[in-house]
């Protein structure tokens, strides 16, 4: 699903940015709207807080609040839902995702877009940077954008808020959570 980002590809994306990566690690998380507004969930299973924040920024751009319906990625915590979904995923997929998110986070520096990582960009710049990835010269960058969008859509459109907004009345049989709840009562 996530384009394979082997070490060579990753380094190609990161050429010349080693120092910035090290330096960048000290930058604060979160000028991006989302990361500003919320802390990472305490029980992240697969993603690091920074990877979570990167994904949250991306999700906010892919499924913003407002427009045809109000609910957006940040209302349902898409990045946290993706983290949960990844439990049990093939470790190679998880590695690709982690590398992809690192590339996304440091991409503004690597691609000469800005002197800050994604999560430290103001919202408009973050949006412009993320939008620019769809027309990147680098195939794996375009594909990374497409793959992350799919992950975010999967998480978002699995939620009741999204179902309500699009007129989907949901499953007919009880889900695990509902069954447990009924049993408890």
């Amino acid at each position: 699903m996530i384009p394979e980002i082997d070490r060579r590809t990753f380094l190609r994306g990161a050429t010349g940015a080693g120092a910035l990566l090290v330096f960048g690690g000290a930058l604060p998380l979160g000028a991006c709207v989302l990361a500003q507004a919320s802390d990472p969930p305490p029980d992240l299973a697969v993603l690091s807080p920074r990877a979570w924040a990167t994904l949250a920024c991306f999700a906010d751009h892919a499924i913003p609040r407002g427009g045809a319906f109000e609910a957006g990625a940040s209302d349902v915590g898409v990045a946290g839902l993706v983290d949960g979904w990844l439990v049990g995923a093939d470790s190679r997929l998880v590695t690709d995702l982690r590398r992809g998110l690192a590339l996304l986070e440091w991409g503004p520096l690597l691609l000469g877009f800005a002197a800050r990582p994604l999560t430290a960009l103001p919202p408009e710049s973050a949006g412009a940077y993320l939008a620019s990835l769809t027309t990147s010269r680098l195939g794996f960058v375009r594909q990374l954008h497409a793959a992350l969008s799919e992950l975010c859509l999967l998480a978002f459109y699995s939620t009741r808020s999204a179902w309500r907004a699009i007129g989907y009345d949901g499953p007919i049989v009880l889900g695990l959570a509902e069954s447990v709840e009924l049993e408890r009562r």
Partner: peptide, 10 residues
Amino acid sequence: SGRDHKRWMA
């Protein structure tokens, strides 16, 4: 993507 995508999903 973005709001355009939501317009379709609506």
